[in-house]
Design a protein around this nucleic acid. Structure first.
Lengths: 196, 196
DNA sequence: ACTAATCCAACAACATGTTGTACAATGCTA
DNA sequence: TAGCATTGTACAACATGTTGTTGGATTAGT
């Protein structure tokens, strides 16, 4: 572990305690006293670091936001003009390894819609910037396709976590690829017609 | 307007007032007093109808949940074995017309993740029931494809509302169809390669 | 190196606000 | 006018946000 001032340490302890509670119950039921009790501080101390509980959550969310330079790859496989998949950006996997559990909670049914919203907006922006470099024409339309795909992907991943990984990662990957490249409705119709 | 008992009317007034506040600020900052002041009742009256603010939200959410017999169509166009699109269910449009604004808020960045989760789960279940009647094989895989599509569609719709309908409904419909039938990544790659 | 001045994280205590409940008094409406 | 719906009021329990104090660490002066 790296050096840490007392200030930083206390703040982290408070955030950790808050997170433990956040995993268990809705924001409305969490009190400052609970947080500080759990972290082992006086209630007043909380207010030297945060103006209220909401701010604590905002700080947590911000710390989980990916940098601009990360994360493209697990969400979308961009290909260049020759059809070659653009290489994943370094650090993405570390990011997910470190924050995956928390992110899963925020994406889940007790999670935070603001987080999901911001996350999607960022990913969209990253991809759109890339597209603008290529002087793409139908930018508005493009944005909607991206949105559809990002949301679908996040949600698929979230469902997988919720179902306790009931299928293995490879299978999920295959389903994902088929869906994303052939079209969800095509795949569905195909599956339906296979039955007869 | 239809007949309404005093009791129903009061309850509705309280729910309306709550909704006005909910649109503006997070649940944690809303107090019972604010609600009853806005609705013009005594604070105690609130407690004859709800045990707490959370319950008020739950009731609101429940009132916006689509019946089992509705809503398939705007989210997915199921086709039968001959490729004919199954007819939309009656009442779906009325439902969206009446509740669209509220639903948009609940799906949005200040919305409720539980609502989104429940909504997706219901839609998934409706479709899966349908699929099981047809004795479909790969049920697990099927579920993920559905999830991807529903989430993508909801999110696309939500973005459209957020962008104040910056493209017209027909265009959105076209983008949607192309994406859902040809695959988001295929469409994206196609758009990118069109630039050069 | 020793002391004094300063800083500042953490705390206890306080004032104020909110919650949930109770119950008698008042107002509507059928 | 009888029966509910709503009000007004009060209360205990708890939560919030602020203030002034304490004591250990950090810095500055000699």
């Amino acid at each position: 572990m790296s050096e840490m001032s007392r200030k930083e340490e206390t703040k982290n302890n408070l955030l950790d305690a808050f997170w433990e509670l956040y995993k268990e119950k809705p924001l409305t039921k969490i009190t400052v006293k609970e947080i500080t009790d759990k972290a082992g501080y006086n209630r007043g101390t909380f207010y030297t670091y945060f103006v209220d509980i909401n701010e604590a959550l905002e700080i947590l969310k911000a710390s989980l936001m990916p940098d601009k330079d990360m994360i493209i790859n697990p969400f979308i496989e961009l290909k260049d003009n020759d059809g070659k998949i653009i290489e994943p950006i370094e650090g993405t996997n570390d990011y997910l390894k470190k924050n995956g559990e928390k992110i899963a909670v925020l994406l889940g049914p007790k999670g935070d819609p603001g987080f999901v919203h911001e996350l999607k907006a960022r990913l969209r922006q990253i991809i759109i910037n890339y597209a603008e470099d290529l002087e793409i024409k139908e930018v508005e339309d493009f944005e909607y396709v991206i949105e559809y795909h990002i949301a679908g992907l996040i949600s698929m991943y979230q469902l997988w976590l919720e179902k306790k990984q009931n299928i293995d990662e490879e299978s999920l990957g295959l389903v994902y690829e088929k869906t994303a490249y052939d079209g969800a409705l095509s795949v569905i119709n195909h599956m339906l017609n296979d039955t007869k």
